[in-house]
Design a binder for these strands. Sequence first.
DNA 1: AAATCGGGGCG
DNA 2: CGCCCAGATTT
Length: 312
Amino acid sequence: MPPASTPPPGAPAEIAPLRAEVLTWFAANARDLPWRAPDRTAWGVLVSEVMLQQTPVVRVLPVWTAWMARWPAPSDLAAASTADVLRAWDRLGYPRRALRLQECARAVVDRHGGAVPRAESALLELPGVGAYTAAAVVAFAHGGRSVVLDTNVRRVLARALGGVALPAPSQTAAEVRRAAAAVPAGEREAAAWAAASMELGALVCTARSPRCDACPIAARCAWRAAGYPPDAHAARRRTQAWTGTDRQARGRIMALLRDAARPVPPTGIDAVWPERDQLRRSLAGLVADGLVEELRGAAGPSGYRLPVSPAR
DNA sequence: AAATCGGGGCG
DNA sequence: CGCCCAGATTT
């Protein structure tokens, strides 16, 4: 096992100048995001990463700001009412992330004394933290070396190194190896590369209409050199259905309960969705997920509300 | 490996 | 109206 300062084996020789161009570009073009500010905390970075899982930056910004003002430390979120947490999550989507974030706060308090761990292995043990988020926290919260491979970096590497329009629908082992080989040896440089390569994907090397005229590595881009061949996986990508799905029904119910000041009776739930069987299935799913609390009366459910107390 | 899980904004 | 967004978890 080589020390962390040893360059990864198999790094192509052309990666170094490419990285240098991206890092220079980043120094002049990085967005001024609050979770990157000098006064950021490791917990604030972790919170931002969870919120940013499948949710665009512009929608996370106001929620993150209010969230961190209200619950600045893991211990604050751990002690909060889950109903308050779900309301503050608002419409970021995938509200189970909010539950896991609160569970994560408790785990940080219980296992790590309230300090976000530095070890990637410890981060991976936290609820709601997967490979990407663990690597991101290592790099962005602690300035450490990790392989940060999100949708942006995947696309940048697929184009610049792979010569294809878009990466495969799901991440491949070869992709991870290529990304690992591109990470600089030093901790500081690796963290900077993670931020810079992500930012390039977010601002220039975008999925829709890449701004190749503004790209610092256009001259080194394999996709450009190949004449911008179209996406080979295009036919196999299918958009996730939304209208009429359980997910939409769940969203309706959550929106109703977020706005309700008191428990909503079953008839109130019925009013938000036309098909009763689907509604009941969706509601049962929310209860099973811990996102909704069912109040029992003498003759069945009497009402529904967001969980008041932490479900410990 | 595939399915599930929100919601909104933009071309 | 399709597509995409700093993915994780479960099956």
